[in-house]
C-alpha cells in the first residue's frame, strides 16, 4: 500500500511537472511551407564556407549556396534546406533560390569552439536529395589568441596571400613554409612535434632553419594557442589522438 502510493503519487507529480515544463517552454512556430518551382542537378557553395569567427557570434559573411542545372547555370526557385548541428543558428533554414540560383543564409555559430559542419540540401528533378557539407570554424578564447599570435609572428611567412597592409614573405623563402590550413602536413605532426618546431625552430625536427625558434619569445600559452589555431583551421580536419586505454 505504502509503496504503491509512493509510486502513484510520484508518477502523478512527475507527469504534471513534465507536462508543465513541456507546455510552457516549447511553443512551436510553424514556418510557411515553401514549394519548389524548379529543380537543379547540382548544389555548390558559392561563398561563405570555412569562415572563422569567435564562438557564439555570427559569421562575418553570409553563407551563399547555389543550385545549378547540368550546364552549370543557376536555377531559380529550387528549394534549399539547411540542417545545422546543435547550437548553430541559421536564418533562413530553408529558402527558394533567387534569380542567380543562389540562397543566402546568415549563420550564428554555437557557443563551444571547434568545427561545425552544416548540411545544405537540394533535390534534383527525380526528387533525389543532393547534399553538401559546409564546415564553419568557431574560435574559443585559445584559438582566437592563437589567431592573433600567428598573425603577428607567423602569417607573414606562412600565409602566401599578400595584401597592401601585409606583404607576404612566403615566396621569398628558399623553402616555402606550409600554410596553416594544410592538414595533410600538420595532422601528421603531434602537439609535441609542433611545440618543438615552434619552440626550437625547424632544425628541431630536421626541417628548414628558415623557421626560427620562438621558445624564448612566446609564452607556453601562446604556443599552445597557435597549435590550437592550426588544429582548428586544418583541412582535412584534425583528429585528436584521444586517450589510450589499456585493454581489459
Amino acid at each position: 500500500m505504502k509503496r504503491r502510493a509512493w509510486f502513484r503519487s510520484s508518477l502523478v507529480v512527475g507527469t504534471l511537472a513534465v507536462v508543465a515544463v513541456c507546455g510552457c517552454s516549447r511553443v512551436h512556430k510553424k514556418a510557411p511551407v515553401l514549394h519548389a518551382t524548379a529543380a537543379g542537378s547540382a548544389l555548390v557553395v558559392s561563398s561563405g564556407d570555412r569562415q572563422l569567427a569567435p564562438s557564439g557570434s555570427p559569421l562575418p559573411q553570409p553563407l551563399i549556396m547555389q543550385v545549378n542545372d547540368n550546364q552549370g547555370n543557376g536555377v531559380t526557385g529550387a528549394l534549399v534546406k539547411f540542417s545545422v548541428p546543435a547550437g548553430v543558428k541559421i536564418d533562413p533554414a530553408e529558402a527558394l533560390s533567387d534569380s542567380n540560383g543562389e540562397v543566402t543564409a546568415n549563420v550564428t555559430l554555437g557557443n563551444t569552439s571547434g568545427r561545425y559542419v552544416l548540411t545544405a540540401m537540394a533535390w534534383n528533378k527525380a526528387g533525389h536529395p543532393i547534399s553538401v557539407q559546409v564546415p564553419e570554424l568557431a574560435a574559443g578564447y585559445q584559438e582566437e589568441l592563437g589567431y592573433q599570435v600567428q598573425r603577428k609572428y607567423c602569417s607573414r611567412c606562412h600565409d602566401p596571400e599578400s595584401t597592401p597592409e601585409q606583404v607576404s614573405n612566403h615566396d621569398n623563402l628558399a623553402v616555402p613554409p606550409h600554410s596553416f590550413d594544410q592538414g595533410a602536413t600538420y595532422n601528421k605532426l603531434s602537439d609535441a612535434d609542433l611545440t618543438a618546431i615552434i619552440g626550437h625552430g625547424g632544425p628541431a625536427l630536421n626541417l628548414s632553419a628558415l623557421m626560427p625558434p620562438y621558445g624564448s619569445t612566446l609564452t607556453k600559452a601562446d604556443i599552445q594557442a597557435v597549435i590550437a589555431y592550426i588544429r582548428l583551421v586544418s583541412d582535412p580536419p584534425y583528429q585528436a589522438p584521444g586517450l589510450v586505454y589499456a585493454k581489459q
Binding site: S55, P85, A86, G87, G110, N111, T112, S113, G114, Y116, G140, Y141, Q142, E143, A221, Q224, A228, A240, G242, L243
Partner: peptide, 18 residues
C-alpha cells in the same frame, strides 16, 4: 578534456581559457 567532440549542451567541454 576528452569530451572535446561533444557540442551538445549542457555536456560540452569548456573551451581552454587562462
Amino acid at each position: 578534456t576528452s569530451l572535446g567532440d561533444i557540442k551538445m549542451e549542457p555536456y560540452s567541454r569548456h573551451p581552454v581559457i587562462p
